[in-house]
Amino acid sequence: MSRNRKGLWRSALAVAAIAGFVTSAAAQMELKIMAPAGPGGGWDQTARSMQQALTQAGIAKGVQVTNVPGAGGSIGLAQLVNNSKGDANQLMVMGYVMVGSLLTNKSPVSLDQVTPIARLTAEYEAIVVPADSPIKNAQDLAAAIKADPAKVTWAGGSAGGVDHIAAALFTQAAGADPTKLNYIPFSGGGEALAAILGGKVTAGISGYGEFESQIKAGKLRLIGLTSPSRVPNIDAPTIKEQGVDLDIANWRGVVAPPGISDEQRKQLVDAMDKMSKSKEWQAILNQKGWMDSYMSGDAFAKFLQNEQARTKEVLASVGLVKS
């Protein structure tokens, strides 16, 4: 064990030396942010970026990040609802993926029970086809689906996730039966991308960032983005402008536990408002390539409710949720 201890000891020194954080002006707030996923993923990165921005901008004195992985965030949510009731210092990162997975997992807790605080970032979905595909635009794809939805295979992320929902919405908007959607879920982004590049499927759907470098290299053809209007910095048409009515985004936000007072809620909303405007947060968004889609308080609460209702409807229409 001696060698092992020495290793740990040295790492301790190295970490302390290299990672010496500089904390700026202290504020009063002590926050805990839960990432309902393991370290490394999108929610975890969001939580840790918030930690960085909140402390460096002096909005909170201390921020502690915890990970509660499992079942697309259902386990983290259950913990927030059951164990943190009324705790005004607790936040949880969540996103659109959670809305869908709570429904498909038949989770006993729901997002109606939490206190919505703010939406932070969003990424639009991109639909792509292999570069040598005869499909050139959204109309071609819609026509192929209308002709025979079974023969148009889609590669994307997990069943019931945002990719799947977007594919179902596209099928519906193209005028075909969404229950006939031939969607093939893949576990990792890389695996789905390989299937698209290898021409094993007709089309692929995922966040724009997953495809960006392939599109630029000319290996994939971008059919369009699922945004309501053109996105700055991305030279791409929207699906909507091509006459297929589709508007969906993969967003991330934060919620607080149930049972906190209006005043406590306002404090948290204020903190998020401040953070979203801070140069520290903007710098992180820039560095990570996340799109700012800030929205807080009542507006976010209403948005969350609408998303839940719409998602339930879509998932029922593709047969993933029995209503």
Partner: peptide, 18 residues
């Protein structure tokens, strides 16, 4: 969770098994 349909198999209602 079954990867292709999103349904739970052999979890017996324990969310940690999903």
């Amino acid at each position: 969770i079954d990867l292709l349909t999103g349904q739970a198999r052999l979890t017996f209602g324990v969310p940690e098994l999903l």
